[in-house]
Nucleic acid binder design. Structure first.
Lengths: 130, 130
DNA sequence: TATTTGTATTATAATAAATAATACAAAAAG
DNA sequence: CTTTTTGTATTATTTATTATAATACAAATA
């Protein structure tokens, strides 16, 4: 997967990197076990400071999305824990996001339909394979 | 509805105020047409600067969630537009949130079930009435 | 033995965000 | 008309965030 960033965006660079990898890992665009560029290499590719990339990687590591091994380098976790239910943080963010949608006039059906679309795209292949 | 804030939270005060009103408006806890405290009054109640409250109100006004009238004061919009489908901003936020959930091991079923719960709670009464 | 890895440390500059103090015109209330 | 209250524009101040940089160092690789 090609990692790109938008330097004109108001979203911090480290957050763009982190978000792209989260999306990639969830969708399967980044396969479990897949190698990521080294901190220094990705920094060179993007033309940013290594510590900016390191910040993104450290975040992902803390979130349990990547593992870092000095031998194997950084890579996507082999499998996501089968933890099951969403946590409180998810509930809070989801309910706020859905509330915002409702105040913008999105109907219940339209909301559920769109969510289903996104979820189906995300989970279209097995349990995180490919 | 009682507006409360958490001064120890790392969420900015103006955002706490804004978020609570969004949730209230979406759930019906704040009825369409319901009066909100004046900027100065809410500021006094919460013990914060009036401009902090103003920032929250200005946001809500720009989002079309409240209307401000010097005569009637601030109040929740009478009805939400029947705009229909979610916008791109929603799609982006939703897909990132759902991606994060998946990388934490939330199953497809659990995800859809929780979303349904939240949406059902939000839309339990009519089209924005009461 | 060199080199490359992640990463810790420290520093600095730039920008953004949050809150506050003040002022003022519009409207309401008396 | 006068006084008070309204939202809000302006300005300032403080704090937090962001990005970058310069080193350094131990672990591992080649």
């Amino acid at each position: 997967m090609r990692l790109e960033i938008d330097l004109t965006s108001d979203v911090p660079i480290y957050r763009q990197i982190r978000d792209r990898i989260v999306r990639g890992a969830a969708s399967g665009a980044l396969a479990p076990g897949e190698r990521l560029p080294t901190v220094r290499q990705l920094a060179a590719d993007l033309g940013v400071n290594p510590m900016t990339v390191n910040k993104a990687y450290a975040l992902l590591k803390a979130e349990g999305i990547i593992v870092m091994d000095r031998r194997r380098g950084a890579q996507i976790c082999e499998s996501f824990a089968q933890s099951g239910t969403p946590d409180d943080d998810f509930d809070g963010k989801a309910s706020l996001l859905l509330s915002e949608a409702r105040t913008k006039g999105v109907s219940k059906q339209a909301l559920l339909a769109r969510i289903s679309e996104i979820v189906n795209t995300l989970y279209q292949d097995g349990e995180g394979s490919k």
